[in-house]
């Protein structure tokens, strides 16, 4: 708790424009953000004429810019009482922002499969046969790829918080500055409209 209190103080001082605190906060958060983005970029091919390292450096800067935007609105929203560490929160923002940036630049082709398919054991209930299961897994990867490509930063953050991390609606609402009703509405729309639209032509039996 003492450490969280110290981190909140550090955030406040940094957003008040204190240089030493800003340097300290950057030094504290940057390694985790770099690691998060490195794992993300591992799944991409760099754009022509650019190295992966250059992309990484740009995205690290953009992640911090997002946290500091609007007078540090996103950074101020971090609250350890909601169960997420500052580093975890910064990583989530960085990943969401990076996906948004990569999508908008449209300069990196997305791989349609994870780097190590053998590490993922997936089944879909509607794919009973062995070939169907392989096809289902491939279809799921493709859907995941589309999801990353199509969702904006906030949508991705919502998907991650609600589904991947299974966090409560109230928690997510507070973290994103939304009302619980708006979260429920987003969730409903995502499940009923966005997901089916993205999954539309994927065939799980196509192995």
């Amino acid at each position: 708790m003492a450490e969280e209190g110290a981190e909140r103080q550090l955030v406040r001082e940094a957003l008040d424009g204190d240089r030493a605190s800003t340097r300290s906060l950057v030094a504290r958060l940057r390694p985790g953000i770099q690691a998060e983005l490195a794992h993300l970029l591992q799944g991409y091919e760099p754009a022509r004429g650019r190295s992966a390292r250059q992309e990484l450096e740009d995205l690290v800067q953009e992640a911090f810019a997002s946290l500091w935007a609007d007078g540090g609105l996103l950074l101020r929203r971090w609250d350890p009482a909601r169960g997420r560490s500052l580093e975890s929160y910064a990583r989530l923002v960085a990943r969401s922002r990076a996906l948004d940036a990569l999508r908008s630049r449209r300069r990196m082709p997305w791989r349609e499969e994870p780097t190590d398919p053998s590490s993922v054991e997936m089944t879909l209930s509607r794919a009973p046969s062995p070939s169907g299961r392989v096809g289902a897994r491939r279809a799921l990867w493709q859907l995941q790829s589309r999801l990353r490509r199509e969702l904006g930063a906030r949508d991705w953050q919502l998907f991650t918080s609600l589904f991947t991390e299974e966090r409560g609606v109230a928690q997510v609402a507070e973290e994103l500055g939304m009302t619980p009703a708006a979260i429920y509405q987003w969730r409903s729309r995502f499940v009923r409209k966005v997901l089916p639209a993205l999954a539309g032509d994927l065939d799980p039996e196509d192995g």
Binding site: H39, P114, V120, M122, S125, R126, T160, R192, L195
Partner: peptide, 22 residues
């Protein structure tokens, strides 16, 4: 299609990939 189940499968895929990180 059970969209709820599909959303859960996607979330699990994300978690597994995260856990599989070195």
């Amino acid at each position: 299609m059970d969209e709820e189940a599909l959303a859960r499968e996607l979330a699990q895929l994300e978690r597994q990939q995260r856990d599989a990180r070195e």
